[in-house]
Design a protein around this nucleic acid. Sequence first.
DNA 1: GTAGCTGCAAAACGTTTGCATGTGA
DNA 2: TCACATGCAAACGTTTTGCAGCTAC
Lengths: 150, 150
Amino acid sequence: MPLHGHTQKKEVNLEARSIELLKDKGLSITGPRKMILTLLLKEHGPFSAEDIFNKLPKKSCDQATVYRCLNQFVETQLVSTAYLEKEMAHFEFNDPQHHHHHIICKICKKIDSFPDCILDKIEMTLGKKGYKDIQHRLEFFGVCGSCQKT
Amino acid sequence: MPLHGHTQKKEVNLEARSIELLKDKGLSITGPRKMILTLLLKEHGPFSAEDIFNKLPKKSCDQATVYRCLNQFVETQLVSTAYLEKEMAHFEFNDPQHHHHHIICKICKKIDSFPDCILDKIEMTLGKKGYKDIQHRLEFFGVCGSCQKT
DNA sequence: GTAGCTGCAAAACGTTTGCATGTGA
DNA sequence: TCACATGCAAACGTTTTGCAGCTAC
């Protein structure tokens, strides 16, 4: 099978999967929702709301719709948020099987991910202190190899 | 010594300490800077810029001055920031001897601190991957004991 | 048919900035 | 004296909201 055909099939699959996910969460299937969720399935992120808006085909939906959809996705836990730079939310598809964290280069802002998470112990300690329904948010910041050269 | 006198002495000491800290960083000693830094020495925080503005005596300085002072304190590493809720910066006095993290109740927003930090291993791993000057930001979110009852 | 989603424009929010005035060293 | 800090008001960038019209189910 030629590469082009393969790519097309993959995109179709991602759209089908996003429709399924929307149905699962009881959200109706609309153009903007399909496009945004498919994008977040295809590219890992995390992306700012503006990034996402710019990655969508031009004039495909309003910026307010992007914000509304993303908030709904966060509420239904399809998408998770990270606050990476000053006060700006970044969004990525929330795959509960692949909990991970980010390291952001302080200079070029490139975002890398890694799966290590050793916070279960702390969460258990907090559980013993009486907290329930515990989550955490963890980001690392540093200067990446290529930025050190410049 | 009566309690009142003791409290007064403590406040005087904190103001003296804040003057010393400002001098150390080469910042000139002004009313707003003294007041803001003394407040952050007295109360642990972390507080939003608005919290801090409201905690100062009425009409003691402008809100823009609070932001300007806090940014200078962050630049000079007197103060550190945490991004706790949606996109709002919170500030606290940065005591390098007492690295710690927060747990925020998802309901009442009460902020608790705890000293445990087991992230040195991850930072070492990231160092081996080529990153330098690594920092992290870690917050926990949960429902505290008293909010579970309601 | 109807609940709910969208586009558009306006507002809200936290934060920053320009400028004239005032103050610390 | 003079660099720098402040107050005030206006601007900024991101996010939310009100409302009229449209679309999915």
